Simulated scan of single mutants.
Amino acid sequence: MDKNQLGIQYMQDGKWEEAAKAFNEAIEEDPINPVGYINFGNVLTAVGEEDKALKFYQKAIELDENAAAAYYSTGNLYFNQERYQEASKMFQTAMEKGLQTADNFFMLGLSLIQLDQYRLALPFIQRSVELEPSDAEAHFQYGMCLARLELLDDAKEQFEECIILDPDHSDAFYNLGVAFGLKDETEKAMEMFNKALEIQPDHVLAAYAKKVFEQGAE
């Protein structure tokens, strides 16, 4: 088996040392192939060695400026460090270099959401949903984006799709409740808040919203 494929198998099994060894051998066998460096960087990221990981991603880009996966991995690293502006640039570059995957569109959109750039984020989150319609979290974030842009009917559709895919998504129930509340559908809103609290009893926002609606009904 190819050393990179073997290393990926080890990563999937959580065998980080074995994965690192396999990727190191892949680099030694083919030192001008960026794939081994990207994979080694991913192992380092997974075990918390982010500074070292970044050097491997940079090496991959030095070897091939079109190595889209290196930009994507760098973007994930920056996102985890809450460096959202830099992350968004990496995901954008990965897209421009040909990485047209649901994950890349999602992470680009999510980075822009973290920067409160909802209108810019919307088409990327929408594209991630189109490419991976079974991703509950993508539907949720798409709904959040739409809600921020006051497109409530469209947002409700996405929250409803989210809870179909993930019936335990308490945040989707809560935000669906808010959407119903803003439409003066109080009974439906209360049902959603109660469902959110049933799933997550310590859901502070749902508890507060329920209390507000109950006081308003008195």
Rank of each mutant, 00 (worst) to 15 (best):
A53L: 09
N76H: 03
N104Q: 09
Q158P: 10
I113S: 01
R119H: 03
D171A: 01
D166V: 00
F106N: 00
K52Y: 00
M11E: 03
P201F: 05
A19G: 04
M107L: 09
A53C: 08
L108F: 03
L110D: 03
G75A: 04
T101I: 15
G181P: 06
D64N: 15
L176A: 04
A217G: 06
A68W: 05
E50C: 05
E157T: 09
D13C: 06
E62D: 15
E62G: 03
C145K: 14
N4G: 15
P201G: 06
L44M: 10
S73A: 12
D2K: 13
T101D: 08
D168M: 11
A22N: 15
F140P: 07
D51K: 07
Y37I: 01
P34N: 10
M190K: 15
A179E: 05
E65A: 10
Q92S: 03
L6F: 07
L146D: 00
T186K: 15
L77F: 08
F79P: 03
N4H: 11
A53K: 11
A68G: 04
Q85W: 11
L44W: 02
M190V: 07
E150L: 10
F180Y: 13
N80K: 08
F193R: 10
L54R: 09
V212Y: 12
E198H: 05
K15T: 02
L131F: 03
Q158A: 08
L77E: 00
A68Y: 04
S111E: 12
E18N: 04
R148Q: 13
A19Q: 06
